[in-house]
Design a protein around this nucleic acid. Structure first.
Lengths: 156, 156
DNA sequence: CTAGTTTAGACAATGTGGTTGTCCATATAG
DNA sequence: CTATATGGACAACCACATTGTCTAAACTAG
């Protein structure tokens, strides 16, 4: 099967599209009071989840060591996005939870993502955007939350 | 304008699709004799270009310091993908060029990307894939080679 | 031609985020 | 009760980025 577009354009466009959306998200988040958030943080917050988790479990979900997860938590704690509390049922565990500021950033992110998707729907047409999403769903794993991002994009 | 899909699914699917393709590329590159290449290296090789460049210019294109670019070049030189030579017209400059092994990896990457795109065309239909690419072109900047990847995905 | 400015590259010190290894306290299984 | 497994803290280390400094070479004015 022959093609009109060179094969390398597809992955680049996919990544550029991701980047365009994420850049817009963070520009808007900065305007709305969260200028220090980085693209990675959304994944970390998702990995923490609504009920909180532990550093060990967080490391597992993100695909990093528990120590690395612990350092992420430390810096996010300093920035006021998460807090650590004791687990009444297991004195070893310390539960990492999102603070009000953390959940606020998540709520704003969701709203901004919806707004950006609406922009796309206006530009492409709702049917084309739906088709694009259907096609991407077909070509990607079912579980949306593959959170093991840190380190995936290795450098020289 | 209302939507059926939550807004956050679109960027995640875009990224997952990119990742699926890149993972497949590198699995195949590893089978074909380039197991040490990482996703980042393709961007670096593109930034070096067919005629070679200098560490300073490479840093500019990749959006990193000249020192960081120099270290990338060092490690790629150790791996046999690039070589440094003098510039006969400017004794300060050292030209970084791809070696035969470097250009081989680029040629293989191009072929693998084409093969992956054919797979997508078979799965989605050539028309749907073409529409997808058209839509992505519409929503992304014209210049395909935004190479300033290192550091963009900041971590906590 | 010389003097001053700019540029490429090397070297050093530092910061951050990742790694492994060790250790202790607490739970859990037999 | 004892043995094992788990969560978390601490230390050492490594990879990769940063800034700052320095030298050599090349431009640019005069």
């Amino acid at each position: 099967m022959s093609s009109d577009a060179p094969g390398f354009e597809l992955p680049l466009r996919l990544f550029l599209a991701f980047r365009v959306i994420v850049d817009e998200l963070h520009a808007e988040l900065a305007r709305e009071g969260h200028p220090e958030l980085r693209p990675m943080h959304g994944f970390v917050f998702q990995a923490i989840g609504p009920h909180g988790t532990t550093a060990v479990e967080l490391g597992r979900r993100l695909g990093v060591s528990k120590q690395a997860a612990g350092k992420m938590v430390e810096s996010l704690e300093r920035a006021g996005y998460v807090e650590r509390g004791a687990d009444p049922r297991d004195a070893r565990r310390k539960i990492v939870r999102l603070t009000a500021r953390g959940t606020d950033s998540l709520a704003r992110s969701a709203a901004i993502f919806d707004r950006i998707r609406d922009d796309w729907a206006r530009s492409l047409g709702a049917d084309r955007l739906g088709a694009l999403e259907d096609d991407l769903r077909r070509m990607t794993p079912a579980d949306l939350w593959r959170l093991d991002m840190p380190g995936w994009f290795g450098t020289a």
